[in-house]
Simulated assay, not measured.
Amino acid sequence: MTSINLSQGSDHVENLHLCPIPYLLLDRQFNIIDASNSGYDFLKPGENFMSIVEEESSPKFARIIHKNSSGEMELNLKKNDSFELFDIFYQFSDMQQYFHVAVISKDVQYKKVSDQMNGLFDLMGKSTYPRKEPNLTEVLAKVSSLYLKLSNTSDWNRQEIMDKIKEIENHLQQNVK
């Protein structure tokens, strides 16, 4: 067999270690069978996927993955002794009786926007800010660019961030008259 299909295939995925994203092969009880190199950053051989799923998310994960043979969901997973938010894409192979699971970090996206938001709050917190007109243009430009970025993403908690941006705009309008 030369090509590998998620729904059919041999007992293992050849060259799985070459996969550039965290990719896990799990049995029906969520024990790890094989993984990409970055997948082994999450789980070591012999470990169970449920051991890295946040306790509150475990029932949701088990319910969804057993109900639908393929799909995606957001999940908090343990990585480096703390929990991070990830998109989980999964497909069950009837032939192999394995779950194929890809794990994509959302925290990287969140961190980028969060850093930008913190930068704006820092700018507003400077005591010279309200009296310094040139900064106003700069901050408004940053706010606009954040709006554009957010409107072009289908993001996790976009609403929360949009609310923060509104807060910033209101603050700007009150303080720079």
Score class of each variant (00 low, 15 high):
35 A>L: 02
152 N>Y: 13
174 Q>Y: 05
22 P>R: 00
72 E>R: 00
76 N>A: 12
100 H>S: 10
91 Q>P: 00
76 N>W: 07
72 E>V: 05
46 G>L: 02
3 S>L: 15
145 S>A: 12
17 H>K: 10
83 F>I: 08
87 D>E: 10
29 Q>E: 15
109 Q>E: 08
47 E>I: 01
164 K>I: 08
162 M>W: 00
95 M>W: 12
172 L>T: 03
152 N>P: 04
91 Q>R: 06
143 V>Q: 03
35 A>R: 01
79 K>W: 11
57 S>T: 10
3 S>A: 11
38 S>T: 08
142 K>Y: 13
151 S>F: 06
74 E>A: 03
141 A>F: 10
25 L>K: 03
62 A>R: 10
18 L>H: 09
74 E>F: 01
14 E>M: 10
91 Q>C: 11
88 I>V: 12
53 V>R: 00
43 L>I: 14
2 T>W: 04
148 L>V: 15
166 K>W: 07
117 M>R: 02
177 K>L: 11
66 H>A: 10
87 D>Q: 12
6 L>I: 08
112 K>I: 14
100 H>A: 09
36 S>V: 07
124 M>L: 14
72 E>C: 07
37 N>L: 11
159 Q>Y: 03
172 L>I: 09
55 E>D: 11
110 Y>H: 08
101 V>E: 01
119 G>W: 02
126 K>H: 15
98 Y>I: 13
98 Y>Q: 15
36 S>H: 05
117 M>F: 12
45 P>H: 07
83 F>L: 01
173 Q>N: 12
48 N>I: 10
166 K>D: 13
9 G>N: 11
89 F>G: 02
26 L>N: 04
157 N>R: 06
20 P>E: 14
150 L>I: 04
83 F>N: 08
34 D>I: 01
170 N>S: 06
169 E>S: 02
72 E>G: 07
132 K>C: 15
104 I>E: 09
171 H>Y: 13
90 Y>L: 01
57 S>A: 14
161 I>A: 00
67 K>N: 13
119 G>A: 08
175 N>I: 01
53 V>W: 02
45 P>I: 06
131 R>G: 15
98 Y>D: 11
61 F>Y: 04
90 Y>V: 06
133 E>G: 02
34 D>F: 00
110 Y>C: 04
128 T>V: 14
24 L>F: 02
102 A>R: 03
41 D>N: 07
135 N>D: 14
12 H>M: 13
124 M>F: 08
79 K>H: 08
78 K>L: 12
157 N>V: 04
38 S>G: 03
101 V>D: 04
10 S>P: 02
164 K>G: 06
93 S>N: 07
97 Q>K: 05
6 L>F: 09
158 R>Y: 07
141 A>D: 15
22 P>N: 06
154 S>G: 06
66 H>G: 09
25 L>M: 12
111 K>Y: 12
